[in-house]
Design a protein around this nucleic acid. Sequence first.
RNA 1: GCGCCUGUAGCUCAGCUGGAUAGAGCAACGGACUUCUAAUCCGUAGGUCGCGGGUUCGAAUCCCUCCAGGCGUACCA
Length: 554
Amino acid sequence: MRSRLAVLIEKALRACCDAGFWEPGALPFVEVELAKDPAHGDYASNVAMVLASRVGRKPREIAERLVGQIHDTDKILQKVEIAGPGFLNFFVREDVWATLLKDIERQADRYGMSDSGKGRKVLLEFVSANPTGPLHIGHARGAVVGDVIANILAASGYDISREYYINDAGNQMANLGRSVLLRYRQLLGETVHFPENCYRGDYIKTLAAELLDREGPPCPNDNGESLIPYFTDYAAGAILEGIKEDLGAFGVTFDRYFSERDLYEDRRLDSLLEDLEKGGFIYREEETLWFRTTAFGDEKDRVVVRKTGEPTYFAADIAYHQNKYERGFDFLIDVWGADHHGYIPRILAGIQALDHDKDSLRVILVQLVNLLRDGKPIAMSTRSGEFVTLREVVDEVGRDAARYNFLMRRSDSHLDFDLELAKRQSNENPVYYVQYAHARIASVLRTAGQRNLVIPSYSEVDRTLLKLPEEIGLIKTITRFPEIVEGAARTLEPHRLTFYLNDLAGLFHSYYNKNRIISEEGPLTAARLFLVVAVKIVIGNALKLLGVSSPESM
RNA sequence: GCGCCUGUAGCUCAGCUGGAUAGAGCAACGGACUUCUAAUCCGUAGGUCGCGGGUUCGAAUCCCUCCAGGCGUACCA
């Protein structure tokens, strides 16, 4: 509806140009928004006011001209009013709304999808946690946000790939191997000093015990560092398998797990450094190689190869991003914890030095999660091993509640996650509010079936019977769903869907309580059944994008 | 010190890239189940949009000062 009105306005603007009311030069892009106040009609546009300052005329005068040039050939408008400082208020004919339901019937479980992405190849990298321990609650939010953004983009016609970058090289991995080795030796009865920077979680002991079980006691008497890679490999492999399982239980899947080690094997870093060198961005100082990131606005230059000859994490990461582009992705999205925000200028410098547009990479920052139980914070630290794992949360509160709770806020705002609250099956928990609406409709449909009522098709419905304000409101809301998905895709903001769902569920519950869907009046019953089926479709489609189930009964 | 994020009802947060009288949930208070699911609904109350300036027809939204909280400021990842 919105886009249809925008077209009308655009035509009117051009017609006014042709009539010489103003220069065709700076026509604004047409904004049409939902009117908040019913007295302002259904949609409102501010074009006249925007145009006023550009052409130097009074907004109301421009508005008059425009209204005169709006040719409502499809007869969708009841009237257009000029109000306030120069708003155009559009009143849509009431019987037009119900005609939009046809799209829902026709597209069914594809309603809300579009091809606006035009098959653009997008690579979305998320989670990417080091395989040094199980995923904890902090990773969970990024996992859901990434997963749902991917769903939304896929539904919007993008060719999207989900990728997890495994950071399986470098110091942290060596620490992991060392930690397991030390626990292993402890199991053999040795007294060992356990350094501060090693991982202390119980899972380390479990891994050591597994290894002991498998390999038997004879650990070579070499207590040097040479054993570490073996322990690292085993631990990282086992932990990664666990991570995949936990993500699977959370409903998060990836198209590919990309190993940092592959970058080294393919000598990607060498070629990267050559490329950067060609651009003149590399210089040597005291045995280290620096990348002149300040050329792109970073606050200081960054090391890419250490004195020891090892490349930094940063170097590998640029190589990884270069690799993404080389695989044909022209739009990259990275989902990071907000504590990495200082890293953004650096990575942007990296891709720009490789001649990629700054805007071809979007970083979504996901703020930290405060985990609470009954309002009291739970302290966590990966290294000390004190943390609540993703698995524990999913097991305790359930997949649906966990996912929905993580999607109820904008990603870049802090989120309190209360385990008790999320678990509670009560009105404090919005996920059930929405699912309940879906289940209720399913229940109504079951009842209808028992009474041998047939769900009518669009052409069989007398749409003029859907004229209650609640019905018009429901129709307006569900026919707006494609706009919501489009907006969420454009801004990469999944929380728009949860807010929309809460709205829609609220309208339905209200309608349900006030009116009977199945009544003695056959045609009215048919029309209402048709309407609630459409509502059910939209709730189901939206929940599916969120990766949350749509129960038929609760 | 510098940089980024945040500050909206008692609490948790929306506010659609400048629009009309700032919204929702929870908590509080008062009501509604012999009816298609009460995990629901209806009503009441609740605000100096952190403070102060500026930009313009118009600011919670954009710019600047200050205040408060969080994060970052590695040859860690």
